[in-house]
Design a protein around this nucleic acid. Structure first.
Lengths: 206, 206, 206, 206
DNA sequence: AATGAATGAGCCTTCATTCAT
DNA sequence: CATGAATGAAGGCTCATTCAT
């Protein structure tokens, strides 16, 4: 019965998502101290059943990270392909990262994954590659901004790193209630990467 | 025969430092997955002996954090009291955070401690308070910069948060070998917080 | 596949009993030096699994004691409600405490629990209360004996304490092979609490 | 310098006593969970120094028990050799066991030592032998009482066991604050082992 | 597929004992 | 003699993972 098989497949995918969502949330808060039982409870299924979807806790973590990174990549691509100036795109990107939109928790998970020894080097390499891919998208946007005069001159890779880091950190601070992130914060951020007026003029002349 | 109490005391303090140093290094890499046995090995003493200096793993973590925060506070104070423009002070501060100088690992430990549920709320509150204290020092520096025209106008607290975060993150990226942090990076960063020329003029007029 | 809940529940209770039985035996012999691994081995399950039934070693000890006290209470009540003279009831009670019947090990566990600092005061209070409850039953029996002339006059509480203590101690000595406890021993004991003939007569006249 | 050696010897013996006293007190309350450090603190000397007097914790326990048993033997012998009736001697014995006089804690230590597996069988055998020696003294006293008509007829060994047990238990209950032991309690106890008047007469006739 | 019972390796922590001074 | 630092073996407890149903 292909019909049933199809339905099963969908159900399975849905379950998988449930697990990943719960896992992302909990990993962000408890790192590798996260217990499988917590994830199971969060996804409303039994401990043992989790192992019908993932082979190990590490695998779940990797999947969470992968999904987060791919999701961020999609956001980046969508933003870039929007009409409007580079600055508008930055603004849009930052806004989509606000609590309502993104999941800054992911940033913390990623940070832990890349900056600690919790994962084998091989896994880290894969993650890093994806991170680089996303960074390249941001670099592209920076370049666009430098061309239309909304971003200061300078190594686009460094600028992208700075900008990406900043956005993520602000959202994190906001989400944990340590410092509210408002539209004003975003404007401040945008002002920081804007070129000095004369430099901008100079830039445009080129 | 009673011991030489003076010498004992010194040795004891030295051991404590050994433990804290090893712990800081390992906590940064393994978070709460850090094993006491690792710390003991790092500090070259037996597992059990660690407990003659600290009551629990949690206590070690807290001590590591405290020491890191206090140390950072000292650096901040020293920098602030230096002669020179605010910008020079920022430059100096950033340079002191370069691998040779500071311990960006601490930043990662702090991040985990404040942004996760690994510690009881009470401990987090204490840490947060110290973090705030350090932030205030940075805020002061920002204000100084705004007055002498080397820093853009805007909420000094937000600017301090952004700046502090950025420096730490960049150093972290550098230390992990993901992105080299050079003097150029620092100059870029300084340029970002500099006011737009006309704004600066406007600022000075006030 | 969801399990058979009914059967699971029964199995669970059975396991719990296995643990308690093993624990009672071993606690009596090793006090708080009892190892969880010993209990697990005695109950034929793995160390870790014990913790699916009890939260801690302390909790097991408390459960063992509770079960022992409740069981003794049941025996007391059954004996009291039997037909026959008070003396017959005492005889029956003592006989039921003989190795085949009761578990004098429990007495040793109780002794340790109440007379040492192994347990927090709060737990001791609960245990003491139950012990008092049981003592009251014995007091009742003593009173009955004093009325029907088979027990000497005197403070029933003191007599009950003496009698209860004696029975337990004798059984303990017997069980450890230090002094055999026979029916003769029991008769001796009964004779000890019997009133002096004239006193008995005097008593009945009242 | 023989003078100094002599003094040293005395000091050493004094220290040993300090340790044993502290140990007895603590062993009674904490059994084999007693820590060497607790004993050391109780005896006001350093942990390590304890090992200059005893080879191991077990050895301390054995010494405590030995001292307790020997002390009890002395009390028994003194009592027996007193002038007066057997009953007077019992009374005196019981009174000397009251809190002010004896150390019922010892009884608990002994109970644990003999009725548990904490000590190797060999050590237990030695202890048991000494306990038997003391019991024989009590048996002698019982026989004396049966001859002068102040104790009921019956196997003197069983009676001695009962009596010894009773006294110890009462003192224990008293000392722990569970039931006050007064002179009245002692009289009750004495009444229990007194022969029935006619039996006493009968006994004397023999 | 789904459950949760069961296992056992591993880590934190304690403490008897030894050692350097 | 005297101290307390140091060691390391052992035990309580947790939790990833597997298994029976």
């Amino acid at each position: 019965m292909p019909r049933n098989q199809r339905k099963d497949q969908l159900l399975r995918e849905e379950r998988r998502q449930q697990i990943l969502e719960a896992a992302a949330r909990i990993f962000a808060r408890r790192g590798m101290l996260t217990k499988i039982s917590d994830i199971a409870a969060g996804a409303k299924l039994s401990q043992g059943h989790v192992y019908n979807y993932f082979k190990s806790k590490d695998e779940i973590l990797l999947a969470v990270i992968e999904q987060g990174q791919l999701g961020y990549g999609v956001v980046l691509r969508e933003t870039i392909s929007m009409p409007g100036s580079a600055e508008d795109k930055f603004r849009c990107l930052a806004e989509r990262s606000l609590p309502s939109g993104g999941s800054p928790d992911m940033y913390l998970v990623l940070l832990q994954a890349l900056f600690t020894d919790l994962l084998p080097a091989q896994d880290k390499a894969v993650i890093l590659e994806r991170a680089d891919g996303n960074l390249q998208l941001l670099v592209e946007l920076i370049r666009e901004g430098q061309e239309d005069g909304s971003v200061m001159p300078g190594d686009p890779v460094q600028l992208a790193t700075l900008l990406g880091t900043l956005i993520q950190n602000l959202m994190l601070l906001d989400m944990r209630g340590y410092a509210p992130a408002t539209k004003e914060t975003i404007e401040l951020l945008l002002k920081m990467i804007r070129p000095a007026p004369d430099a901008a003029a100079e830039n445009l002349e080129k």
